[in-house]
């Protein structure tokens, strides 16, 4: 579904992605973790073209990114992206937020889009917040609207960029519960997060990155109980202590 082959990227002189080779199968859930500045956000932002790669191949849903034949705008409709800062549209209600792209990008009739929007919002536990503006919602509620916004596009892939790190601690679980639900329905997911409970529960694989390179991959059990490298051991001891 997603395949990186020898991908490199620089920000000026900074080598942010070093020779990444990685593939994600359909219906697989992959958690990406690593210290800040390790390139994990850049990695998933490349998948829907928010960042462009310098060399190597990145194939998503059978289409090679950077090819003339690949229509990025169309490809993006197949990929849901959940931001750390939610990025809900502040001038739109929750329902308008989730129906905007279906109506204007997918060209779904308004009535139909609204029906499925209501259904999705109800599914993430916000059946009573259709007409609330983002400023009237808590962080956890906003992030759940953001997830519903992606689901309304019926994507094949969902990407999550540290979806819980901007949240107050008591709101993290409500968002993670929704994400677990999405994973259990068989969505292909790539999730940048440090939430190890989530990784253990639904991830098939954990990818550990440091300094722009993939250092280690393994099943959650292998990775958490028996990290293979010094760098992953150091990282785990830091996040588990807190």
């Amino acid at each position: 579904m997603i395949e990186f082959r020898g991908v490199n990227k620089w920000f000026g002189a900074l080598h942010v992605l070093k020779d990444i080779t990685l593939s994600v199968e359909p219906r697989e859930v992959v958690v990406v973790c690593g210290p800040s500045g390790s390139g994990k956000s850049t990695l998933i932002r490349c998948i829907n073209g928010l960042e462009t790669i310098k060399d190597g191949d990145l194939v998503v849903d059978g289409q090679r990114l950077g090819d003339r034949a690949t229509n990025m705008t169309e490809l993006r409709t197949e990929i849901g992206f959940v931001f750390q800062a939610f990025n809900l549209y502040p001038h739109k209600t929750a329902l308008e937020n989730v129906t905007l792209a279906p109506i204007h990008v997918r060209k779904i009739p308004r009535g139909e889009a609204e029906a499925s929007g209501r259904e999705m919002l109800a599914k993430v536990g916000l059946g009573d917040k259709f007409n609330a503006y983002p400023s009237e919602l808590s962080g956890g509620q906003q992030q759940r609207v953001a997830i519903a916004r992606c689901l309304c596009m019926r994507p094949k892939i969902m990407l999550f960029d540290e979806p819980t790190s901007a949240l107050d601690p008591e709101m993290i679980s409500e968002v993670l519960d929704v994400m677990v639900g999405v994973a259990e329905e068989g969505m292909t997911m790539m999730v940048v997060t440090h939430e190890m409970g989530f990784a253990r529960k639904v991830a098939q694989r954990v990818v550990f990155m440091d300094a722009g390179a993939v250092v280690e991959t393994g099943t959650p059990d292998e990775f958490f109980s028996d990290p293979k490298t010094d760098r992953s051991r150091a990282f785990l001891s830091k996040i588990l202590r807190h």
Binding site: R76, A85, N87, L88
Partner: peptide, 12 residues
């Protein structure tokens, strides 16, 4: 972030 949210949902 607003621009990126638009891009990510496939808007022109």
């Amino acid at each position: 972030g607003q621009v990126e949210a638009g891009i990510a949902s496939g808007m022109t």
